[in-house]
Every structure is written in C-alpha cells, then in structure tokens.
Design a protein around this nucleic acid. Sequence first.
DNA 1: CGCCGGATTGAAGGTACTCAATCCGTGTGG
DNA 2: CCACACGGATTGAGTACCTTCAATCCGGCG
Lengths: 258, 258
Amino acid sequence: MTNKGGISASPLPKAGNVQQPVSNSRLKIACSNCNLRELCLPVNLSMGEIRQLDAISHLKRSYVRGDYLYRSGGKFQSLYAIYRGSFKTQVLHEDGREQVTGFQMIGEIIGLDAICTEHHACDAVALENSEVCELPFNKLEALSRELPSLQRHLHKIMSREIVRDQGIMLLLGSMRAEERLAVFLLSLSQRFAARGLSPTQFQLRMSRQEIGSYLGLKLETVSRAFSHFQNSGLISVHTRSVELIDLPGLRAFIGKQH
Amino acid sequence: MTNKGGISASPLPKAGNVQQPVSNSRLKIACSNCNLRELCLPVNLSMGEIRQLDAISHLKRSYVRGDYLYRSGGKFQSLYAIYRGSFKTQVLHEDGREQVTGFQMIGEIIGLDAICTEHHACDAVALENSEVCELPFNKLEALSRELPSLQRHLHKIMSREIVRDQGIMLLLGSMRAEERLAVFLLSLSQRFAARGLSPTQFQLRMSRQEIGSYLGLKLETVSRAFSHFQNSGLISVHTRSVELIDLPGLRAFIGKQH
DNA sequence: CGCCGGATTGAAGGTACTCAATCCGTGTGG
DNA sequence: CCACACGGATTGAGTACCTTCAATCCGGCG
C-alpha cells in the first residue's frame, strides 16, 4: 500500500489489483516492495539490483486535476513513473493550437521527449489526483551502464513510445472520425485490462475536448461518434462512464469503408 | 570518399559537402575517417573510442528505389545509418491502408521502432539509390555501456524521434492541407541546409502519393496545394523539382486562419 | 511514335467543422 | 431543500474543406 513505481513498459503483464489507495505518499518507499513492480519492471533484476534502483528514485507529492507535472521548455531532470492517477501530454503551437499527444496511466513512464534537448518538449498535466515516482535521468543512465537488462528495458520503453506514436500517425492520417474513436476505446480497454481492471467498463478521465484534440477531431464530432456507437448498440455511454458492449463489433468497425 | 556513416542525430550541425559519390561501397571503411562524422557523431569521442565504433559497424550494399531495407515483422538485428540516398518508412494496416511515417535522409538513423519487440514495426523502402551503414544493436548497446557519451547520444537520437513524431501528430491533428505542405517543405529545407545543400532548391525524392500519405492527404490535394503555392508566388514547382521563393511567406502561411 | 505512370486540373459529393441552441450534472447560495 | 449558475456534453443546421471520380497533361522509355 505504501509502495512506489519503478520503470514501466507497456503492453503490460497482468498485475493484479494495483489500484489501491496510497495512505501516506510522502513516505520514502522501495521499488523492491512496490506493488507496481510487475508493471514497471518486467526485467530480470536481482534483489540487489532492484535495491540500486530504490536508491535513485523518490516518491513525489500528489497532483490534482490540472496540475502540471512539467511544462514545455522546462529544464529536464527526471523521468516520471506514474504511481497513481493519470496524465495527458500536450504540445502547443505558437499560434495557440494545441494537440494532446497522449494519455498516460498508472505504471507508464513520462518525460522521454525531453532527453534530446534537455528541455521538455511538451506539457504534462494531471487528469485526476495523481502521484508519480521521480527517476533522476543521470542516475538512471549511470545505473543502466551497470545493469544491461535495465539498459535494454530503457531502450524498449523509448522504442515503444516511437511505435505508439507511429500508430497514432496512422490513425490521424488515414482513419475516419468514428474509426478513430473505436481505436481509442479499444486501446483504453486493453490498457485497463493489462492493469487488472475491467476492459469493458471504465470511467474516462478526459473531456470530449481532450479526446478530440488527441484524435484530431472537434469535440462535437467526438460526441456524435459516441452517440452513434451507442445507437448502434456497440457501447453504452453516459458522459464519462463507458461500457463497451460489443468488442468484436467495435473491432470490426475499424477499416470498414464508409 | 570511401567513408561510412556512424550514429546520427538531427538537427544536424553544418557538415560541409557530404554528398560526394561513393566509388566502392563494398569496402570496409572506418567511422574514424567518414565524412559524415560531423553529421552522425556530434559526440565527444576520442579517436580510440571512435575506433571501437568502427569495429562494430559494416557498410552494406546499395539499394535501388523500391528496395526494402527491412520489412515490418522482420527480425531486428541492427540500426542503420544512411550513408547515401534516402528512405521512407511506412506502416501498413491489415485492411490495406498505409501510412508513410517518415522520410529519412543522409546521416539519419533508422530502425529504432524495432527495439521494443525485436521485430520491425514498419517497412523501410529506398527512395533512390542508397547505401546504409549497419550497426548491430547488441554491440552498440554493449559499447554504449562503456562510453557514456555514446550512451547519451543514443538516448538523444531516440528522444528526438519521439519529439519529431509529436510534431507530426500536431500537424496531422490540427493543420489544414496547405499548412501541412508548407510545414513539410520548410522541414525539408532545414534538413537540406543542415547538410550543406541549398535550402531553397531541391529535388523531391518522393511522389505526390507518398507526400500525401505522410501528410494525411490525397495526392490530388497535395498537387493542388503545390499549384496554389506556385500561383501565390511562394514557390516554383515543376513535378519533383522545387524552389522555395518566399521562405518568410511560407512560414507566415502556417497558422493563418483560412 | 506511342505507351505508361505520375502529375495536374475540374466538377460533384461527403465528412467533419462551425455556429448555435439545449440538455444535463455538479456545486453554490439563498 | 430547492433554485440557479456553470461547465461540459449533446444535438441540429448550414458550410467549408477535402475527397472522389474522371479527364487531360506531361515526361521518360521502349
């Protein structure tokens, strides 16, 4: 209950019920007995090696909805493993346009975009009450020189981010509005399932506006797509609570011509 | 003239005229005297350290337009530094849709998407006669444990790829057709400039179809946007040869409401 | 010369956007 | 406790932009 996030990778292995409340988040806790360990460290590390990770990570304070974990342009120090809650990342264009580039949930790593310039390339904003585990990057790099399996793990996390982004490019570049939403819902479903939560019933943590920004659509279009899925019997939706009624039907919907 | 690509990062420092023809590409050549070195290795490595890099890299044979450097699903072994020519990467959806996810040119590194699964997540296809330098990833990882500045460099390359992809998400998610093309042309211009080539006159290596796929547009829309820019006096275009006449005008075009 | 693929241009149609009204759930204050 | 206000979500009508379909053009090559 008083544990701490380590280094995440998704797609994630089953991790049992990891969504227990954290009673005292200021406590310094160890990766070695974190209940996110199977989520964050699917790596063959010995107990001794995990203790080395413990030594470099800290549990940070809570964030409430709207709080910034970091801001675009800010100096890069650390990666963050999400221990509780969820975040969105967004890039802002000088003309005021904004694009949500991702929604991150428990066990995922955030901040990789900042490595190349040592400054954050996007904002990270809490979508709900959240806690993160801070991983100072210099120390992480040093440790990964010692531990090849940690090094490989770090590379995989970054590579996975690249693959994920390419998937979104495919979505944005070639899918129609309702297909985009179907892909989005199925992706959420998978990620909840990987965390031992229901793949068919969940609460959205983001607004229609935020979903739209992520999917390259206006909020009204997102809303219409939700309604259409509901009228087709594929889902049941009531503002932010969603039930996926016909998963195969949703999957089949993707790629269908008009 | 008979040199070899190393490990690239962009945005790239000025690198003089790196576009000399390679007389005999089968020769084993060294990073240590590669004329791409300033492009590929903007890293503080000693001569001895660079020789260690030499030891793990090989120059691969030429590819002609349409040749696959690797295919989606193929086993991952190596990263590739482009030594001459250019490539596109594309992901294919089961329903036949395809999305070009990037165009890579000389000095850039390709294959990072495969690290997470050990299998390539996209196809890489030559756009013209090209040569690459193969970098076996296991050896690269091992060496980067020895050389912190190489390690950092590798992380930066991966991070830069993530940032680049986020920029494309912004483009695909929130820009209109002509803005997308303007961004694309300005990005090419910058990349040519970084290689000591003209930022205002160049040959496109890809078809309208391929540009369209990259930008999330149909080829006719791309063609119309080219024509419109030409009629507005911003560029001069004749099939694949492009001259950017009014760079500030192009820049100003981005973000303008309708 | 004539073919072929890629590029351009035109006209018609469809999808998603814009603008606007209404609804609904939550939280606040009387 | 209820009325009201507020922000987010839904729904509708009209429009803009991009796509689709189709014809034509152009350059390279056999």
